[in-house]
Write a protein that binds this DNA or RNA. Structure first.
Lengths: 233, 233
DNA sequence: GAGTGGTCTAGACCACTCA
DNA sequence: GAGTGGTCTAGACCACTCC
């Protein structure tokens, strides 16, 4: 009944989760303060603090100074998706990765792209289109705009052999990013490249990045309807 | 040039990000140890540790004992999406929330649903279908299966007035969950309820939950193509 | 074996927020 | 004003992993 090892913040977190699941602490209820818990668990307040912060980050607890810590009424569970390199994503499925450059030229951003990145619609950008394949089958159609002002080297990048995705990862750091997921109907070019009927439902992921408030790149990644984004908690 | 306040782990994190962005530390490079950084920043090792751990969690750094800390070669940036209650999601947009129950009956799970949850296809489950509206317009079509074995009270739940989404949040805790996002073409029922042409591209989010390995619920949430899931880093 | 990160402690002060 | 969480410190020991 004694020989306990020193408690870790993980142990404490699990114990607290158990209490919530068993309704010892109901949703919305106030739980004891850090000091009280530290005394109960026989550890320091810092350890309790770390456990509680982890649970708060996961959306299970809500904490406010002075008000204390309570069990979330609606566990705003958050889903975490890792966004790997397309190549790694494909190879992780055990498929062979393929890459095909479709086009690469300098062009005006246009209103749609300019607005998204906060650039003028007449700004000159590098426009790259390419296709990623898994075992020879189209996997992702990539339509990317790169701001040469933020990544001057991009003009000379070897996009014939290296996908912009991969090249940018090691050549264009960013400090802020935005992701958008949505469904859409395949346009003419996308449908042709992905070998789908025009108007087919496609999964679209968009990514925008900035480095210190300077736009770096905007990419639209289009997948066939068989594509799934999965996350487990 | 001096009067510095005490450095916070945030300050340190930002400074490190700056160095990575400015190529002081290149991708793949080893950065100084915690002790060295603590000395440089003039703070304790614990503070440096916290900053580095945060960056490692964000996928920007990779840390290994004895090996040290290095800048990730491919920043496996992870996107975090919060999954709120539909009602909150709609109200957060400033729209008025509406709810309509479409059907609620006991039925066999069927192969598709059974397989996903690890139940037999002849298992009896509660099948609920409903619609969530924003300012009177269809926002989300919800098709849900509930395992009465895990949530016995569900049979008597007032789904006429409370959406299963909301009811389950406070009545069916879960320990494990799985999310899937994908694009699909609207089926007959979905199209009719969402007031879309049949075959329109729809955004589908599926959620499966378990409590201690016992399946709790499987829900398929269908949105019109205007729907977007956004996350900023 | 030795070096690096991982974690815990005990104590302190601060910042926010509620009453 | 007072109570709670947020953060920092200085020191310590441990666990993992590379050599």
């Amino acid at each position: 009944m004694s020989g306990k090892k020193r408690l870790s913040y993980r142990d404490i977190g699990e114990d607290i989760l158990r209490r919530i699941a068993k309704r010892v602490w109901e949703p919305g209820a106030l739980i004891p303060g850090e000091q009280a818990l530290a005394a109960e668990f026989g550890c320091s307040r810092a350890t309790v603090n770390r456990a509680l912060q982890d649970l708060a980050r996961a959306g299970i607890l809500e904490r406010r100074r002075k008000a204390g810590t309570r069990v979330s009424l609606n566990p705003v569970r958050e889903a975490r998706f890792v966004i790997p390199l397309v190549r790694h994503e494909i190879e992780a499925k055990g498929a062979e990765y393929g890459y095909r450059l479709l086009g690469c030229e300098t062009a005006k951003a246009g209103k749609a792209v300019g607005d998204r990145l906060g650039l003028d619609k007449s700004a000159r950008m590098l426009h790259v289109r390419c296709l990623h394949l898994a075992d020879g089958a189209p996997y992702q159609y990539e339509d990317r705009w790169i701001n040469p002002d933020a990544v001057p080297d991009a003009r000379n990048a070897p996009f014939e052999t290296v996908s912009p995705n991969e090249w940018l990862v090691t050549n264009a750091p960013f400090s802020r990013a935005e992701f958008v997921f949505r469904a859409a109907r395949a346009g003419v070019e996308e449908a042709a490249q992905l070998e789908l009927p025009e108007g087919e439902a496609v999964f679209v992921a968009e990514r925008l990045t900035w480095l210190a408030d300077k736009p770096v790149t905007f990419v639209r990644m289009v997948h066939p309807p068989s594509h799934r984004i999965v996350t487990k908690l």
